[in-house]
């Protein structure tokens, strides 16, 4: 048995034929075993025959355009593994060796077959569109759109594009030395994903206060959203960078550690600073909830302030203690000095 991979320059994807019965005829007419409807092919173009010694022979049936091997026209050609012959404009790759056959037997090609590179470029296009949309949304939520604002949006889109492409290009140039491979698309995928993640975060982080007014709920919700997002993101990144050598268990652990670290620092940074800084996000102007007088009365403020007062009294005694200590230290130092 042999496998023929038939490719024409104008086709999107090659045709693949398993040939199990011999002789096998190739031509434009429908009486042939393999029908190739192309103008460069004659009605009865060629014939594959199995010879006594086990080799396969491709014989020209006096066709107009003939059969070629390595650019030269022959009457008959002995087929080799991975050999390429040409019938008219059509290229035929033949596969003979057994283990290759084993492997190829497994493949079931879908009707619309896409290569990996094609898939990648499609994703990149999708992500670029998402990024543009996010940039627009961020800007739109801030100010009414007018000509100046549009210029702002365009500038930020261009800046984002330049950064993303630039970083990807740099990364691919630097890694080329080591990997001996120029993987621009791979890095572009990674940088674009980072950019999208960043845009989603900034949108989410800056605006959560607008629609959620309970601190505890806010914290739980944010932590879970961040966790889910970082989880997805870190796994995707690992997949991209460790492409072939992706070891699931180790990388899952690594990814979890990374996510835990990010979540921890974020939580600490956001929720501990709230009590030491005077910069709070947002008044819930477009909140839909109302705040009844009974629940949100001065009692709440009063009890909060009472807590603050006790805090301050504590700070005060701390400060006095510090002062005392430094004074004692000064005294002891001045005593030690010889007069």
């Amino acid at each position: 048995m042999i496998i023929l991979r038939i490719q024409h320059p104008s086709w999107n994807s090659p045709q693949v034929h398993k040939v199990t019965t011999f002789p096998c005829s190739i031509g434009r007419s429908i009486q042939n075993t393999i029908v190739l409807s192309d103008n460069s092919i004659s009605a009865e173009h060629a014939m594959i025959e199995k010879q006594m010694d086990g080799t396969f022979l491709l014989r020209d049936l006096d066709s107009t355009n003939g059969i070629f091997f390595e650019g030269k026209r022959f009457g008959q050609i002995i087929l080799r593994d991975q050999g390429q012959v040409k019938c008219g404009d059509i290229e035929i790759t033949t596969m003979l060796s057994d283990d290759r056959l084993e492997k190829t037997r497994q493949i079931e090609l879908p009707a619309e077959f896409k290569t990996k590179a094609q898939k990648l470029s499609q994703r990149i296009l999708l992500m670029s569109l998402t990024l543009v949309l996010l940039i627009y949304t961020i800007n739109f939520l801030m100010d009414p759109m007018d000509s100046e604002k549009w210029i702002d949006v365009l500038v930020s889109i261009v800046a984002a594009g330049v950064t993303v492409f630039g970083v990807a290009g740099l990364a691919s140039i630097i890694t080329k030395v080591q990997h001996k491979k120029y993987d621009f698309l791979k890095y572009l995928d990674a940088t674009l994903m980072t950019a999208v993640a960043w845009a989603v975060f900034s949108l989410f982080r800056d605006r959560i206060d607008f629609w959620m007014n309970n601190n505890v709920l806010q914290m739980i919700f944010s932590v879970s959203v961040y966790f889910a997002f970082y989880w997805f993101y870190s796994n995707k990144m690992l997949e991209i960078f460790f492409e072939g050598k992706y070891r699931k268990r180790i990388h899952t652990v690594l990814g979890s550690l990374f996510v835990a670290f990010v979540i921890f620092t974020w939580t600490v940074a956001t929720f501990s600073e709230r009590n030491t800084r005077f910069n709070y996000k947002a008044s819930y102007v477009y909140t839909t909830s109302s705040f009844p007088e009974g629940k949100y009365n001065f009692g709440g403020l009063e009890s909060q302030m009472k807590e603050s007062f006790t805090d301050i009294d504590e700070f005060r005694s701390q400060k006095i203690e510090e002062k005392e200590e430094s004074r004692q230290l000064e005294d002891s130092l001045s005593k030690e000095k010889p007069e």
Binding site: N213, R274, N275, T276, R277, F278, Y280, A282, S283, Y284, S290, F291, P292, E293, K295, Y296, N297, F298, G300, L301, Q304, M305, E307, S308, F309, D311, I312, F315, R316, K319
Partner: peptide
């Protein structure tokens, strides 16, 4: 002394809510 800060929501007697 150091600062002690807090935040919240309050509704006054005229039924106006503040943050």
């Amino acid at each position: 002394t150091k600062f002690s800060c807090n935040e919240g929501i309050i509704t006054n007697k005229n039924k106006l809510s503040f943050r």
